[in-house]
Design a protein around this nucleic acid. Sequence first.
DNA 1: CCGCTCATGTAACAGGTTACATGATTTA
DNA 2: TAAATCATGTAACCTGTTACATGAGCGG
Lengths: 189, 189
Amino acid sequence: MALRHAVLAALLDGEFSGYQLAKAFDVGVANFWYARPQQLYAELTRLERDGLVAGREVPQDGRPNKRLFHVTEAGLAELEAFTAASAKPAFVRDDLLVKVQAADRVDVDDLVAQLSERARIAQAKIDLFENLLHRLRGERTETEFLRHGDRVGPYLTCLRGVAFERENRDWCTRTIAVLEERRQVHARH
Amino acid sequence: MALRHAVLAALLDGEFSGYQLAKAFDVGVANFWYARPQQLYAELTRLERDGLVAGREVPQDGRPNKRLFHVTEAGLAELEAFTAASAKPAFVRDDLLVKVQAADRVDVDDLVAQLSERARIAQAKIDLFENLLHRLRGERTETEFLRHGDRVGPYLTCLRGVAFERENRDWCTRTIAVLEERRQVHARH
DNA sequence: CCGCTCATGTAACAGGTTACATGATTTA
DNA sequence: TAAATCATGTAACCTGTTACATGAGCGG
C-alpha cells in the first residue's frame, strides 16, 4: 500500500484539497507517483479515518467548499516507518516495450507511429519537469540549491523524472531509426 | 490486459514451458515485463482456452512432464491488433521515489541505505542485460546486428532496460551524494 | 447555451500480490 | 539430510481502472 505514503509525501509541501492533489497526481506533475481522482478521494478518507491526515473545511464563495488536508504527527511517524522498511525494486512495465519486443513480427508503421507519439509525450514531460525544477531552485544554481535549499526532496524526485523521460525519448527515436533503416535494407533485397 | 500480450511476445522466440516463462518474467530478465509464476500459469491456461497459444506435453524422465507452448496464427493476429491499438504512456511508480520525496522529513540513514541497496541491484541488472545483449548479437557489432539481424525486438527492449537501470543507478549515487553533503553542511551549523 | 473548471464521490470490475499446496529429483 | 530446482497450480485479498453521478459558476 504505497499510494497512502505518496499522498503523505505530497502533503509535506503544505495543505492541499483532494482536487488539487488529483491534478498533481493526474498528469504526472507529481513525478514520483500517479493516481486517479477517485483513488485519491478514497485514500484521503481512509487517511483521515486513521488519523494520518487532518482536514479543515474552507468555505469559498462562488465555488463549492473544499477540504484542505495536512499531515498529522501520526502521519509523519507513518512516513518514517515506511521509509525505514525496505522497498522492492521498481521495474518498467510498458505496453510499448511489449510491442517492440514483437517488432519483427508486427506492422512496422504502427510501431513507428506509436514510438514517435511516445517521444513527443516524453518531450512534453521533460519540458514540464524542467520548468518545475527551475521554479523550485529559483535564482540559485542547482548545486547551490541542492546544498543549501531547505526542501530538496521534490527536486531530487523531479531529477529522476527528467532522466527517465529523456531516456524514454532517446530510446524511442533510436528505435525508430533502427526500424526505418531495416525497412530500407529489406527493400533492397 | 497486457500480460497476455507480453506472454505472446515472449513466445515469439520459441517454445517455452510455464516454468521457463516464470523464470524469465520473474527477475526481470524479460526486461519488457514482469510477472509472478501463478499469474503466468493462469494466463497460459486462458491463452490456450482462447486458442492464442497451443501447448504440447513433453514427457521427461526423472522430472515432471512439462508443457511447451507456442503462439498460434490467431495469437499472432492478436499481437498485431494489440500493436495497432494505442498504448497509454508508462510512468515511474516507485516506493523509493516516495521516500526521497519526503527526504527532508525522514531519517537520512534509512534513505541512504536504501539508495545504495538500489544502486547495487541496478548494477546487477545492468550486468545481466549487457550479457544478454552480447549473447544476442554474437560476434557482430551492435550497429551491424541491428541492421541485419533477423530478430531485433528483444535486443531493442533490452537496450531500454539497460538505459533505465543505468539512470536508476546514477540517480541513486547522486542522491546519496547530495544527502551526505547536506548532512555535513548541516552539522557545521 | 455549451463546455470547462471546481469539487467530491460510488459501484463494478480487471489485474496483480501473498500465502499456501504438492511432489519428485538433484545438489551441497 | 537439508535445501534448491523442476513443474504446476488454488484461494483470498489488495490495488487500481472504468464508468457513472452530481451540482454550481464562469467564459465564449
